[in-house]
């Protein structure tokens, strides 16, 4: 992906809407967050807040720590043996607090991965309902309603409503990824983390997901890691630039892409490195 095309205005469509009001309700905030793999700090002293009902993009070259940072927000970083120092507040709760249940946290902060990860032994319906089985038992009609709503929100309902019992792996890559989004939003999280969700999709599948984000931010707070700067420019309200594990700059997307204050940000978005 050539970043130079950013400099030719017609190919880039920045959101037409005005930048979001600056004093929205902040939902999730990392304070002085450092994330380690063993003794290596992949993310260093990041302090940043994310407002509710916005799309927040995290950009930066490979290995800059943006994905690691994302994974600290629902403690998936720990799954691969990492640990953190610093704090992450979700509302008023410290997600690294002593009595936090990882199950409850991850149901509040859902995650969609780079490659679509439907459960191959489950049907489409079972996949969407997979996250519901944990916790309170719902009745069948309730689950039906939740599955339909999640698939509607993920823009997949019309394509799969007649074959909910079929295997999820029969879907195309783009559909599988929207299925994973449906599965993530079914338990009604507050925040959705997307880790390069379109990296393995074709342009059409990518476009469907990008359109989806506009609708989803009405109900959810979205944080998306992308290595595609046009995508960040198209879908996000705020953009944060990571480089070598540190957060270089964060701000309204329009400002980051038109008037970055840091030299390294400008160099990156104009394609001079990375």
């Amino acid at each position: 992906m050539s970043a130079n095309s950013l400099m030719t205005p017609p190919t880039v469509s920045l959101p037409d809407t005005a930048p979001p009001p600056p004093f929205g309700r902040e939902l999730i905030r990392a304070t002085d967050l450092t994330a380690f793999y063993g003794t290596f700090a992949a993310v260093k002293n990041v302090t940043i807040g994310f407002e509710a009902n916005r799309v927040h993009a995290l950009i930066g070259p490979s290995g800059c720590g943006k994905s690691t940072f994302l994974r600290t927000l629902n403690r998936m970083h720990e799954v691969v043996g990492g640990h953190v120092t610093g704090r992450v507040l979700l509302g008023r709760d410290d997600i690294y607090g002593p009595r936090v249940s990882l199950t409850n946290l991850r149901r509040r902060v859902g995650m969609v991965f780079q490659k679509p990860t439907p459960f191959p032994t489950m049907s489409i319906y079972q996949n969407v309902a997979a996250g519901l089985k944990v916790g309170a038992r719902q009745s069948r009609p309730e689950i039906d309603a939740i599955v339909e709503r999640a698939l509607q929100q993920a823009g997949l309902w019309n394509e799969v409503k007649d074959r909910l019992r079929q295997s999820a792996v029969a879907l195309s890559g783009g559909q599988q990824q929207r299925l994973c989004i449906a599965r993530t939003i079914a338990p009604e999280p507050a925040v959705i983390l997307l880790d390069e969700p379109t990296a393995s999709l074709d342009p059409q599948g990518t476009q469907r997901i990008e359109e989806l984000l506009f609708n989803l931010k009405k109900d959810f707070t979205i944080i998306i890691v992308t290595h595609n700067m046009q995508q960040a420019a198209r879908v996000s309200d705020t953009t944060t630039f990571f480089y070598l594990g540190t957060m270089v700059e964060t701000g309204a997307t329009k400002q980051i892409f038109t008037a970055p204050t840091q030299e390294r940000t400008e160099a990156y978005i104009t394609g001079r490195f990375g």
């Binding site: 629902n74 998936m76 799954v79 990882l102 199950t103 409850n104 946290l105 991850r106 149901r107 859902g110 995650m111 991965f113 490659k115 990860t117 459960f119 191959p120 032994t121 489950m122 997979a130 996250g131 089985k133 944990v134 916790g135 994973c180 599965r183 993530t184 338990p187």
Partner: peptide, 27 residues
């Protein structure tokens, strides 16, 4: 590993992830 992570990311415990995602995948 993505299957495990997908289950854990949904709030599954390690046991649930093993039983609902990993074992069926390998059945």
């Amino acid at each position: 590993a993505s299957q495990r992570e997908a289950a854990l990311g949904l709030g599954a415990t390690r046991w649930e992830a093993a039983w609902t995602a990993v074992v069926p995948y390998a059945r």
